[in-house]
């Protein structure tokens, strides 16, 4: 089985997401556009797992799918387990903001009409989202609780946000400041899982390192972090395992130690990614990721792969090879068995 027998905090089994769209501006016919297909990823206790993929590959949608934040025209398939329990839409609503915290990518996720200090202290509405006030604002009691005030101040201070910042509105904060505010708001609660979507751009290196140390400390308490990023250098520095995302699916999941040399990696795309790093040769692989509208049959990497053969156009299952998993026909490992331990 896997190389760790630790408890799963998050387990995603063949997640698919598609969007319904009008075919074109003149037609009323709707077509389904698959953006994530058969994605499998897991986070064990004490682990930081990085999902690494290029821009436009659908990484953010993964976070939104786990948290049930997709727009109305999205359809999802597959199963997500949290602590061994199937995450239904009701359960997601119950856990998010509490047991599952989210650090969003865009800096527009803050309430523009609320001072940031207050916003971070208030956090999730303690009554569970049924506040009578406008727009479900947190109740004043929670916001003014001295304990929470102390914690919020300490977190802000840790990230170099001065007392003045507490009273600022989001539009008065710089990009880097907003990132830090978003991060502190996730650390305010007492989550078991943090899902962080590109948390570091706009922060300088020292701050980015500090936030990664905090994720590390958080994970070391037996909790889990799912770090979604395009920055493989960052991922290699902090994560325990890396899931490589290509054209809407994970093609390989490998422990960070496998990135020490090209031979330890499995999928041809991961190897190309490794060779393209400035410290490993800086060799570009020609071409770009296929669009969802013209996705090839079978392996999405097929058209760019030098080992392409006819069997690559068929169904390609995820298989376990060594301490990682890979979706490539050239490997003959054990099939993945997510269902077994949830049966």
């Amino acid at each position: 089985m896997s190389c760790t027998n630790k408890r799963h905090i998050l387990e995603i089994d063949e997640l698919s997401v598609s969007f319904l769209q009008y075919e074109n501006s003149r037609s009323s016919r709707q077509i389904e556009l698959p953006v994530i297909s058969k994605l499998s990823v897991s986070v064990h206790e004490g682990e930081i797992v990085a999902v690494v993929g290029s821009s436009g590959s659908g990484k953010s949608l993964l976070a939104h799918a786990i948290l049930g934040m997709l727009p109305y025209n999205a359809r999802t398939g597959g199963k997500i387990y949290f602590n061994g329990e199937l995450l239904t839409p009701e359960k997601i609503r119950e856990y998010r903001g509490g047991r599952i915290a989210f650090v969003p990518q865009s800096t527009t996720y803050l309430d523009p009409l609320m001072k940031v200090g207050e916003q971070v202290r208030g956090g999730r509405n303690s009554s569970g989202g049924k506040d009578s006030g406008r727009g479900g604002r947190p109740s004043g009691g929670r916001r003014n609780d001295p304990e929470r005030r102390k914690k919020q101040r300490a977190l802000f201070a840790r990230y170099g946000l001065s007392e003045e910042t507490d009273a600022k509105y989001p539009f008065e904060c710089s990009g880097g400041m907003t990132r830090r505010v978003l991060l502190t708001s996730a650390l305010m609660g007492n989550p078991e899982l943090i899902i962080a979507d590109e948390p570091t751009p706009g922060m300088d290196l020292a701050l980015a390192k500090k936030s990664m140390e905090d994720f590390r400390a958080f994970a070391d308490e037996g909790k889990g972090v799912l770090l979604i990023t395009h920055d493989i250098e960052l991922a290699l520095e902090v994560a325990d395992r890396i899931a490589v995302f290509y054209a809407g699916t994970t093609i390989e999941e490998a422990p960070v130690s496998d990135f020490a040399s090209e031979q330890l990696l499995r999928h041809p795309y991961t190897r190309a990614l490794w060779r393209a790093m400035p410290q490993n040769g800086f060799q570009p692989l020609p071409g770009t990721q296929p669009y969802v509208k013209d996705m090839p049959a079978g392996c999405p990497f097929g058209p760019r792969c030098e080992n392409y053969s006819r069997e690559c156009a068929g169904e390609i299952p995820m298989q376990r090879v060594g301490c990682g998993t890979v979706r490539c026909v050239k490997y003959h490992g054990e099939p993945l068995a997510v269902h077994e331990h949830h049966a």
């Binding site: 290029s54 751009p201 395009h230 493989i232 990614l273 393209a276 400035p278």
Partner: peptide
């Protein structure tokens, strides 16, 4: 190239 993946980064820089 900070927001690009490694392959795109090396394509562009080369």
């Amino acid at each position: 190239s900070t927001m690009l993946d490694m392959i795109t980064q090396s394509q562009i820089w080369n």
